[in-house]
Simulated scan of single mutants.
Amino acid sequence: MKLALVGDIGGTNARFALWRDEQLEAVQVLATADFEGPEQAIAAYLQSQDLPLGAIGSVCLACAGPVGGDLFRFTNNHWRIDRAAFCQTLQIDRLLMVNDFSAMALGMTRIADHERVQVCPGEAQADRPALVIGAGTGLGVGTLLAQADGNWLVLPGEGGHVDLPIGSPREAELWQVLYRQLGHVRAEDVLSGNGLLVLYRAICELDGKPLQHATPAAISAAGLAGEPVAGEVLEQFSCWLGRVAGNDVLTLGARGGVYIVGGVVPRFAERFLASGFAKSFRDKGCMSHYLHGIPVWLVTAEYPGLTGAGVALQQAPDHSPDAVRESR
């Protein structure tokens, strides 16, 4: 039986692995800038594993953006995929492309207990939706549903573009500054890597403080070192993430739990766990009781998107080369 290959492709890096016996093997990270396209990157990966072209039967790639059809252009790098040319060049039988956050959501079905940290205690209800939300380059939001046949249904959406909620007078003042700077204020404008910088600038403008940091990494480091303004950025970020996640739980009835993913929050995980996230998550007035008992986890797994691509490949119908059980 031929091997399967999975990939999780972002703007800067492409992660590849073999998928065998429902497990990842030989994970490798390649820079997208070093290759003309995914075919060349995968050929290099196969060569590093001493595998000839034709050794791989199926490929599943998690790609940022809506997928479908025979041509896909990546929005955050120079790569493109033509299905027929891709399969011919790499001598594979089928190519499955899935939305990157759909793959991330499916990855939650395979994480181990040691790959997640409890943020809010509770008991997940297996027959109810689970919310997957993650701050990275943007803010991804997806819904995960268990199916009677043992497979999983992913409902991706554009939840990162909802309006940023206001839950306190301080947040109202910050929102006014953000509105002057941005116009329409989306959750993603604050709840993302670059959002840390946007939020920092808004706080400095509101309080008349000088700007001392120019990157999200510098703000995170300063906040962890105890600098008050940068510390407020991390705290307010955590509270706003709690408000957005709580809103999503109410909308979806997501009593199956909440998974916090993405690359931003793990950088200040201890500060996040001690933040006002939980209070803001449950701060829903007369519906606050609904949020009690819903578990929230911070996911620390290294390659959940790759694992999710393997799950997508595993449960896609064999007769359909570009099918995945997700609704767009």
Score class of each variant (00 low, 15 high):
Gly65Trp: 00
Gly65Leu: 00
Gly65Ile: 13
Val67Phe: 02
Val67Ala: 02
Gly68Leu: 07
Gly68Lys: 12
Gly69His: 14
Asp70Gly: 09
Leu71His: 06
Arg73Thr: 07
Arg73Trp: 08
Arg73Lys: 15
Arg73Ile: 02
Arg73Tyr: 13
Phe74Tyr: 06
Thr75Cys: 14
Asn76Pro: 07
Asn77Gln: 10
Asn77Ser: 12
His78Gly: 11
Trp79Asp: 10
Arg80Glu: 13
Arg80Gln: 15
Ile81Lys: 07
Ile81Met: 10
Asp82Met: 04
Asp82His: 08
Arg83His: 14
Arg83Asp: 12
Ala84Met: 05
Ala84Cys: 00
Ala85Val: 08
Phe86Leu: 15
Phe86Trp: 13
Phe86Gly: 15
Cys87Gly: 02
Leu90Gly: 03
Leu90Asp: 03
Gln91Gly: 08
Gln91Pro: 08
Arg94Leu: 04
Leu95Tyr: 03
Leu96Gln: 09
Met97His: 00
Val98Thr: 01
Val98Pro: 10
Val98Gln: 02
Val98Met: 03
Val98Arg: 00
Asn99Gln: 02
Ser102Cys: 11
Ser102Asn: 13
Ala103Ser: 09
Met104Glu: 12
Leu106Glu: 06
Gly107Asn: 04
Met108Gly: 09
Thr109Ser: 15
Arg110Ser: 09
Arg110Asp: 07
Ile111Ser: 08
Ile111Tyr: 08
Asp113Met: 12
Asp113Phe: 12
His114Lys: 15
His114Ala: 14
His114Phe: 08
Glu115Ala: 10
Glu115Gln: 06
Glu115Arg: 02
Arg116Leu: 04
Arg116Glu: 05
Gln118Gly: 09
Gln118Arg: 14
Cys120Met: 15
Cys120Asn: 14
Pro121Gly: 05
Gly122Ser: 12
Gly122Cys: 10
Gly122Phe: 06
Gly122Gln: 07
Ala124Tyr: 04
Ala124Asp: 11
Ala124Val: 12
Ala124Gln: 10
Gln125Trp: 04
Ala126Cys: 03
